[in-house]
Design a protein around this nucleic acid. Structure first.
Lengths: 160, 160
DNA sequence: TAAGATTGATTGTTCAATCTTA
DNA sequence: TAAGATTGAACAATCAATCTTA
């Protein structure tokens, strides 16, 4: 590593730091509500789009489908989520929140929404918008070039 | 969640996406070299500051010291890293890379350095600098307010 | 007391492989 | 063939608790 390019000045490093800082704060604020960050991530997506299949959520979160399945198992055991068979495709499991799950995710998202507000308040509207734009460009540039051609991954069960 | 504030427009969400995209790309480029991302992260820090203690690396990486210990165990087993007792503090384990480790991290960091260059090239110098500044502000704002007063965590073994 | 190391248990995540169904 | 689900193994990371040493 060249000395003029210290580790800590790399965007890769700083991005990691920022992500960790936000994740850590999110986790800390979520704890009193009674939800772990991973469970929040899964549940908020199902709340936004009830009936999503496990595979579809996995794509949204960019995690392995087995991961979603494992989380769903736990949440189902805890009575926060339930699976129902897809009406026309028996092998597809649609995910729904229970009433209890709905209530919990509602409280949790209020907390996360507050964090989002704190962040934009911290940065100011201009920087926040700028950050949004630059990060979007980054994601586009990194994943855009190597993604499958067209319509791949979008199935009947993915209602996003 | 208010409809005007869709999940996907939140900075928290976009930051996660960006981090995951970069991590994924980093992992993909590291694989041919023969290093996992977690091992790279640990080794690059030891390469930069040989003799760092496990606790010190953990602080730098913002991970639990047990995590560093587990990774170090594996890397030691693989002959990429070695521990030596601190000269004056017998219970402190200093971490050093072996010759093989040095060589491997060198090849790995060339790959990661190339990714860093690709990213800045993708964004352009102006946006890259801007992103660096905004993310730094974010980290400052989030963690700065709740950090212990002074000199905490900096011990003899931490030569950063 | 405080910092570092260590051990054990739990959770989150991935990879690989298999099975079922459209 | 392809998409979704499932199972098992391995790895990464955390929390909690203990131990040693300065």
């Amino acid at each position: 590593m060249r000395d003029g390019e210290a580790l800590q000045t790399r965007l890769i490093w700083i991005l990691r730091q920022a992500f960790q800082a936000v994740e850590s704060e999110k986790g800390a604020r979520l704890r009193p509500v009674g939800l772990r960050a991973a469970h929040y991530s899964l549940m908020i997506n199902i709340a936004q789009t009830p009936g999503l299949s496990g595979a579809a959520v996995a794509r949204r979160l960019s995690v392995a489908p087995q991961n979603v399945a494992a989380l769903a198992n736990r949440l189902e055991r805890e009575g926060l989520l339930e699976r129902r068979a897809h009406e026309r495709h028996a092998h597809v499991q649609e995910l729904y929140l229970t009433a209890e799950g709905e209530q919990l995710i509602s409280a949790a998202d209020e907390v996360v929404g507050a964090l989002e507000a704190d962040i934009t308040g911290l940065l100011g509207d201009e920087d926040a918008a700028h950050l949004r734009r630059i990060l979007t460009d980054l994601v586009e540039g990194l994943s855009g070039s190597k993604e499958p051609p067209i319509g791949t991954g979008a199935t009947t069960a993915d209602r996003s």
